[in-house]
Simulated assay, not measured.
Amino acid sequence: MPKEQHRSAAEIEAQIQAQIHAARDQIEATRARVNKRTGRDLAAAVLIALALGGGLLASLLWVKALFLVFATALVGFALYELASALRFAGRDVPRIPLVLLGCAILPITYFLGPAGLWWSTLGAIAVVAVVRLVELADPATRRGGRAVLQDVAGGALCIAYVAVLGAFAVLLTAQDGGEWWTLAMIIMTTVIDTGALAVGVWLGRTKLAPRISPGKTWEGLAGGALAATAAGIPLSILMLGQEWWFGIVLAGLLVVTATVGDLAESIIKRDLGIKDIGSFLPGHGGFLDRLDSILPSAVVMMALFQIVHA
């Protein structure tokens, strides 16, 4: 009898272990299907998004100036990623001076305003170009006038695309009450991305731009627009102090800018022949992959703020 009880207990334990392994395999298979459909490690993406969101909220709602530090760090990583991707594609872009000068644009903009933004941008582009020209003293860096011009243009692209557009978010935050507009913008772009992803995975059939971004669908775009409208109306009333219809206008504009920003980065990645600009953030690719929707949206949000407070 004890031997039979021992055998029965062993069989039960084996069955439990088999069920655990079967459940684990099923979870992994489901996760693999979701990751394949979304093009990212969704679990890692959610954890990273929560961490970044926590840092964002702390910087905006605790001490507003901390957002400058937060944004400058993100822009610095994104600049390094894009410059590295360009170098991988054969463009000799001076990364270190580009990152340092590009990051300097944000605090100059925060404290000096629009004039600081434009003068620091011109200065950063000029210095990066001069650094590339000085490098020509080394014969190994001489690849012809056209190639050098493309290198200089690559550096200017990095600064204009990442640092300047990122500086608009800092400029917006620096305004009286601007932190709420920045927070609303980031919430809206996150909602748009999440809504488009969820509806695209569930119902997506019609490709939006198959040659640029095969994963995007018109159904996903519609889902992002609906989610943006649902979020935009209460955010406009409760956070921005505007009328309910302002939320519909805001949703429409940010859907366009977020989509254009995402597609613009996809064009860059396609031209460079890479899947992700960087690999710092598991499930997201890189920092620029998370900022692509926010960067152009910051310009529109700053314009709306100026119109409302004119």
Rank of each mutant, 00 (worst) to 15 (best):
S297M: 06
G241H: 02
L281A: 00
I277Y: 06
F246D: 02
I237L: 13
M302C: 10
D262R: 05
P282F: 05
K269Y: 08
V260Y: 12
S266Q: 05
S293T: 12
G204P: 11
L238E: 09
A298C: 10
V201F: 08
L235H: 14
G283W: 02
F280I: 15
G283Q: 03
L253I: 15
L197A: 12
G283H: 05
G273F: 06
W218R: 01
V308N: 12
G232T: 10
A198G: 07
F305A: 00
T190S: 14
G247R: 01
A230V: 15
F305V: 02
L183N: 07
M188Y: 07
F280K: 15
A225K: 01
L226G: 02
A230S: 13
L183F: 15
L221G: 09
E219F: 04
I192M: 12
G252R: 07
V255D: 13
L288I: 06
A225I: 02
P214D: 08
A184S: 13
G283N: 02
D292M: 11
S297R: 06
Q306G: 03
G195P: 04
G285Y: 11
S279A: 13
E219L: 10
I268L: 15
G224R: 09
M185H: 07
A251C: 05
S293L: 09
S213H: 03
V191R: 04
V255S: 14
T190R: 11
F305I: 01
S266V: 03
W245V: 06
I187Q: 09
S293W: 12
K269S: 09
G195N: 08
L250C: 03
L254K: 15
T217F: 06
A222Q: 02
A264M: 10
G283Y: 09
G220L: 00
S266Y: 11
L240Q: 08
V191A: 09
K207R: 13
A225G: 04
A198D: 02
G241N: 01
G285R: 03
G283T: 07
A222K: 01
V300K: 00
A310C: 09
I274W: 05
Q242S: 07
V299Q: 00
L203C: 09
V191Y: 11
I294A: 03
G247L: 05
D289K: 14
H309E: 03
L272G: 06
M188W: 09
A196I: 05
M302E: 06
Q242F: 02
G286A: 07
D271C: 14
V300N: 02
L304K: 13
A222M: 06
D292H: 12
G252T: 10
W218G: 04
T190Q: 11
P234I: 12
M302T: 13
L238P: 04
A198V: 15
A209T: 03
I187N: 08
I212N: 05
L281D: 00
I294R: 00
